[in-house]
Amino acid sequence: MNPTPPDSVKTSHPTQDGAGVKIRRIHDFRGGLDPFLMLDELKASAREDYIGGFPSHPHRGFETLTYLVHGGLIHEDSMGNQGRVEAGEAQWMSAGRGVIHSEMPLLDADGLHGFQLWVNLPAARKMDPPRYRDVRADAMRHLPEDDDSLRFKAIAGSWQTSAGDTEGALPQIGEGAAMADLTLPAGYRLSLAVQLEDRVLAYVFDGELTGLGTGQLGVWHGHTQVHLIAQQDARVLLFKGRPLGEPIAHYGPFVMNTSDEIEQAISDYQSGQLAAEPASMD
């Protein structure tokens, strides 16, 4: 089995967000990652590089999935939710028509390493009521059960792999999109079976795959199989989803379809009308 070369490769770049949190970011609000918008890697060992966290700020029009490898975060929002996630756990939030929230590091954490994914919502769902859920480590499924050399953790959506099939603790993110945490030992070969319409992303945050080094994101589109080979021990986040194919209008924490909708979001936030009542969870 030969590796499937990525159709394109993006490299994360250092920046900061919130109250000075050091991150590495990959983003594309022109549709090149559709249905995904942005991936932030939060990785800091020096306290001053992460302790300011992400104080209260608004969102509208998309979903976030925050996944922690090390450390912890406390979430509070305008829906009245309060949550805490630590290593191996995740927080999912669908901002819908509007939510104001904060994400603050645990004071007793020795460093922070995690990720936040932005997933776009279709026009028909951008003004839905907001929702939130914590996802505990013991709710996530692993493949395969009898092979200690490979670790495939399904966080969201369904996956079909050469090591077996599984589904994440979250049925989906966005419109049927999926996310997984993959650990591959050097020389291991893993195949993903996907739909021709799907866009597949692989972000290497430690080690190396064929064609992808640490801090790089591989992008595939128009394939029915993607073959990954570890050149050295590797940690990888995997994503897949069908592109929405809709216009993207973006300004700061708002992602809509038109500039008029962005102006409305800004106006609603400034007037105190952005945050909405929560929807009940199924």
Rank of each mutant, 00 (worst) to 15 (best):
P3K: 04
P3W: 05
P3M: 00
P3I: 04
T4C: 03
P5K: 10
P6N: 11
S8N: 08
K10P: 00
P14I: 09
D17M: 08
A19P: 01
I23Y: 00
R25S: 10
F29K: 05
G32I: 00
G32W: 02
L33Y: 03
D34C: 10
P35E: 02
L39T: 13
L42F: 14
L42N: 06
A46V: 15
R47A: 12
R47W: 04
R47F: 00
R47Q: 12
I51S: 06
F54R: 09
G61W: 02
T64R: 06
V69N: 02
V69E: 13
G72I: 00
D77Q: 09
M79K: 11
M79F: 06
Q82Y: 10
E86Q: 14
E86L: 04
G88V: 07
Q91F: 06
Q91L: 11
A95C: 03
G96H: 03
G98P: 03
G98K: 05
S102T: 15
L106R: 11
L107V: 11
L107K: 15
D108S: 13
D108L: 08
L117Y: 02
L117P: 04
V119E: 03
V119L: 08
P122A: 08
M127D: 13
M127A: 06
D128H: 12
P129Y: 02
P130N: 12
R133P: 01
D134C: 10
R136K: 15
D138H: 14
A139L: 04
R141K: 15
P144H: 08
L150V: 15
R151T: 14
K153G: 05
I155S: 12
G157A: 08
S158P: 04
W159Q: 07
Q160A: 14
S162P: 01
D165M: 12
E167P: 00
L170V: 09
P171W: 02
A177W: 03
M179Y: 02
M179D: 09
A180F: 01
D181F: 12
L184V: 11
L190V: 04
L192I: 10
Q195F: 00
Q195S: 14
G207I: 09
G207N: 06
G211A: 02
G211T: 11
L212R: 08
G213P: 07
G215L: 01
L217Y: 07
G218I: 12
V219P: 05
V219D: 01
W220D: 07
G222S: 06
H223K: 15
T224P: 02
T224G: 03
V226F: 01
V226T: 08
H227V: 14
I229G: 00
Q231G: 15
Q231D: 12
Q231S: 13
Q231M: 09
Q232D: 03
V236N: 06
F239H: 06
L244G: 11
L244K: 10
G245L: 11
E246D: 01
E246I: 13
P247Q: 10
I248Q: 11
A249C: 05
P253L: 01
M256S: 07
M256H: 09
N257V: 09
T258H: 11
D268S: 06
G272E: 01
Q273E: 13
Q273T: 14
A276Y: 01
E277G: 14
